Amino acid sequence: MSRWTDTEIPDQSGRIAVITGANTGLGYETARVLAEHGAVVVLACRNSDKANDAADQIRTLVPDATIDVVELDLGALESVRDADTVLRDRYDRIDLLINNAGVTGLTGTTADGFEIQWGINHLGHFALTGLLLDRIVAAPAGRIVTVSSIGHRFGRIDADDPAAPTGNAYAKSKLANLLFTYELDRRLTDTPAIAAAAHPGGASTEIFRYSPAGFRLPNLAVARLFGRTPAMGALPTLRAATDPDVKGGEYYGPSGLFEIQGYPVRVESSARSRDARRQRRLWEVSEELTGVSFG
């Protein structure tokens, strides 16, 4: 199936989907399409006002949509735990968790003192997934999809000390997304749930909106010239999330040259992302840093 589009998505009625960073860009498009196909969609976002605006936009487009909003700041582990409490109160299972939110080009630290891209893109999602895992495993066919990037190929993670600074912080966090996905899927072997990953290729989104101007403006210019729409960029995530033929540990991205454009297909990640030793060590360190154990 070389031209997979959202018309291939099976009925999602009754399925509960939690999407981080769903008020804009790829997350918004993912939420909109899942709502169109009948899923109960939870927008898990840092800014509740923007999330509620996005929810209203989806309801306008999909009048019978069931949309919920949960406040979630992935840069603060206390907020991650609070979001887990809210989700537990509202839902006895979660069929789909999409770890979509991400930042790039930022400097500084999270509320817990982690480098901000590493803390939000990886550690926040690691903690959220671990806290929600029993709800996901309680679903008949739970699925966790984490959004990585072509940039993971430039990432470096020290096999002995994964938290150590190693150059490009964004690329490191996107490599961590894949190392986490592959180790998570291995640990889910005896459950009905699977973990998969996706990347959007070259997509024109708002990921640069909080970056310093010197980083943001040239990257926005390139994205607008060569990037595809957020709707196209969301297709790999949607395929990883809904295609019945997806298997645990698979990675989806665009089919075109350098995986920048095209329709979603299964793609291969870097050899470094497949390093089982790095996967295990990253997992151990992530549990230590977040205080979240998957059991």
Rank of each mutant, 00 (worst) to 15 (best):
residue 248 G to Y: 09
residue 228 R to Q: 15
residue 141 A to M: 07
residue 15 R to T: 14
residue 260 I to N: 10
residue 205 T to L: 07
residue 20 T to K: 04
residue 145 V to W: 03
residue 26 L to K: 05
residue 237 T to C: 08
residue 294 F to Y: 15
residue 144 I to E: 06
residue 132 L to Y: 06
residue 252 Y to L: 10
residue 246 V to Y: 12
residue 231 A to F: 06
residue 177 N to V: 14
residue 63 P to V: 11
residue 11 D to F: 11
residue 74 L to S: 03
residue 69 V to Q: 09
residue 72 L to K: 05
residue 50 K to C: 05
residue 26 L to R: 01
residue 259 E to D: 15
residue 212 P to Y: 05
residue 104 T to M: 15
residue 70 V to A: 12
residue 145 V to S: 01
residue 53 D to T: 12
residue 163 A to L: 07
residue 5 T to V: 08
residue 3 R to W: 14
residue 272 R to L: 15
residue 261 Q to I: 07
residue 276 A to G: 00
residue 154 F to M: 09
residue 74 L to F: 07
residue 147 V to C: 00
residue 63 P to M: 07
residue 92 D to H: 12
residue 250 E to R: 07
residue 32 R to M: 09
residue 266 R to L: 14
residue 121 N to G: 06
residue 156 R to T: 15
residue 145 V to Q: 04
residue 102 G to L: 01
residue 214 G to Q: 09
residue 132 L to T: 08
residue 251 Y to T: 02
residue 150 I to Q: 11
residue 94 I to Q: 00
residue 150 I to C: 04
residue 250 E to W: 06
residue 2 S to I: 15
residue 105 G to N: 06
residue 72 L to T: 10
residue 257 L to M: 13
residue 206 E to F: 10
residue 123 L to P: 03
residue 24 T to S: 11
residue 4 W to G: 09
residue 37 H to G: 04
residue 91 Y to C: 10
residue 25 G to R: 00
residue 292 V to W: 00
residue 150 I to W: 10
residue 24 T to H: 01
residue 263 Y to L: 12
residue 63 P to S: 08
residue 34 L to Q: 08
residue 190 D to M: 01
residue 43 L to I: 15
residue 26 L to P: 01
residue 119 G to L: 00
residue 44 A to D: 04
residue 148 S to I: 04
residue 107 T to S: 11
residue 203 A to F: 01
residue 59 R to G: 08
residue 38 G to R: 03
